Simulated assay, not measured.
Amino acid sequence: MRVAILAFDGFNEFDCFLPLGLLNRLADLGWKAELASPSSHVTSMNGVTVQAQRALEFANEADAVIFGGGLYARAIAENSALLDRLQLDPLRQLIGGQGSGTLLLARLGLLGDTPACTDSATKPWVVEAGVRVIEAPFHCRGPVATAGGGMAAQYLAAWMMLRGAGRQAAARALAQTAPVGETAQYVDRVLAVVSPRDAADRNRPAGS
């Protein structure tokens, strides 16, 4: 499973590094997550400059794609020349948006009528793009998922592992990174959030 984690200038470290670390826990199963960027180097919102592992176009051939959020998401969403470099296909790819990365999914028409999660600062722009935002850390429908809040990046990564490698593999990866003394509770909680049935029940309107 090849995963492209899209990092643009101003990227949020939680959104990109957290899934990068989690997903690569499945390296023994053939998984490889890499940072893909529009330039050779990108600088995070806190001034950390990293070298991209892949060009932005790697996302077009990857098996899964995560849009990390960041300071300049709105400007990126309005940059058609940049977004035109992306030709994604939810029929063959798992696609996730983290934080303000959800806005980029909206601009690319990947959300349709699916409700989405994002952070509070980005919410007005996502709503303006015609997407219904829900107050939840994670939501998925089919091969597309969104998460809101920096630490919710763990849910996006867990969902991807659950979909691509199964519950046992996802649980193993999460257990390797769980706080000591909280492994069982942590793994169970994260997987409960991202399991499709649980997510559907949690986000269904009361009384339906």
Rank of each mutant, 00 (worst) to 15 (best):
A36P: 12
G109P: 02
D198H: 15
G47C: 08
A147K: 02
S80A: 15
L191P: 00
S120E: 08
P196F: 13
W31I: 13
R132H: 15
F58Q: 01
L20T: 14
A178H: 03
N46I: 04
Q93F: 01
P205H: 01
E135H: 14
T102C: 12
G181E: 08
A106Q: 00
K123N: 12
G112N: 05
A116V: 01
L29F: 10
D201Y: 12
R132I: 14
G69L: 08
P137R: 11
P115R: 05
G21R: 11
L91R: 14
Q51F: 02
K123V: 13
S37A: 06
V127L: 10
I134M: 10
I5H: 05
V48S: 05
V187H: 02
L104T: 09
A200K: 07
A55L: 14
N46P: 00
L105I: 10
L6S: 06
T122D: 07
H41I: 04
A59V: 10
L174F: 03
R163D: 10
L110P: 12
Q98A: 11
P19M: 01
A192N: 14
A175I: 12
S39E: 09
L20R: 08
Q93P: 03
E128F: 00
L108D: 05
G181R: 08
A33E: 03
D201L: 15
L56C: 04
M160P: 05
A178R: 02
S37L: 00
G150V: 09
A106D: 00
A129L: 07
G149T: 03
P143A: 13
L103H: 13
F67Y: 07
Q168G: 11
L94A: 11
A81G: 06
D28M: 05
M45A: 15
E61Y: 02
R202Y: 13
S195K: 06
F58Y: 07
Q168L: 14
G47D: 11
T118D: 11
L23H: 07
V50A: 10
A7D: 08
R141Y: 01
R189M: 01
L110I: 06
P90V: 07
E13A: 15
G164A: 05
D113G: 06
Q176P: 03
G21M: 13
G21T: 14
D188H: 07
V187L: 02
G70H: 03
G97R: 12
A59M: 07
F58E: 05
N203C: 07
A171G: 05
E61V: 13
G96N: 04
V48L: 07
C117M: 04
V190N: 02
Q185R: 10
R85C: 10
A147I: 04
P115Q: 03
L23D: 09
L104I: 12
P205E: 00
E182S: 00
Q53W: 03
T122K: 04
M151P: 05
S120F: 06
T114S: 08
G181Q: 07
I134Q: 10
